[in-house]
């Protein structure tokens, strides 16, 4: 029933992710929300590393911290967000507290009830790219291919949405 070092690490990284996530949804500076999102996603990548999911951790750093956050910051700049604090970012809080608190606390109660303080040994070594690649191309090859079609559809959709001269009705 003791506390292992890996538990301390998991709890610390989880606390960092939760704190940064709370700042993402509560800060009054739009750019700072993006930067706190980097902290939250980095802490989650650290959690993946502790949970021996090395490939997922580095993909998280590459795609989320590298690509998604940069895209979000570009969108912040392109929509001419104010630099300083803005007062009208939030709607009334009660609905959000109700929904978010309900979902978070409900899920937490469910998971605590399911797992209690049980202990499982971590896998001995990290999962590199080779076993994941084997699984993707052996078992999950059909979802993988469907996902590539979806990426193409998303690409074309983004182009069509951002060009108003495509598909305009003649009137």
């Amino acid at each position: 029933m003791g506390i292992e070092p890996v538990d301390v690490l998991l709890a610390a990284l989880g606390a960092i992710a939760l704190g940064a996530g709370a700042l993402v949804v509560s800060t009054r500076h739009i750019v700072r929300a993006g930067l706190w999102l980097v902290v939250a996603l980095g802490a989650i990548a650290g959690l993946y590393l502790v949970l021996t999911a090395e490939l997922v951790a580095w993909v998280q750093v590459l795609l989320y911290v590298g690509a998604v956050v940069v895209l979000l910051l570009f969108a912040v700049m392109l929509t001419r967000a104010p630099i300083g604090a803005s007062e009208d970012l939030d709607r009334p809080r009660w609905a959000g507290l109700l929904v978010g608190g309900g979902a978070g606390l409900g899920l937490a109660a469910l998971l605590i009830d399911a797992y209690r303080w049980s202990r499982v040994p971590l896998p001995g070594q990290g999962t590199g790219a080779a076993p994941i690649g084997t699984e993707v191309f052996r078992t999950w090859v059909l979802p993988f291919e469907v996902l590539s079609v979806l990426l193409l559809a998303a690409l074309i959709g983004a182009i069509v949405v951002s060009r108003p001269d495509i598909g305009r009705r003649e009137s």
Binding site: L10, L18, P121
Partner: peptide, 22 residues
């Protein structure tokens, strides 16, 4: 490893995301 720790962290993050979306 006690798996309840990352599970609770994930539940909290999901709640924060719901709060932010609303």
């Amino acid at each position: 490893m006690h798996p309840v720790i990352p599970y609770v962290a994930a539940a909290g993050l999901f709640g924060l995301g719901c709060y932010g979306v609303v």
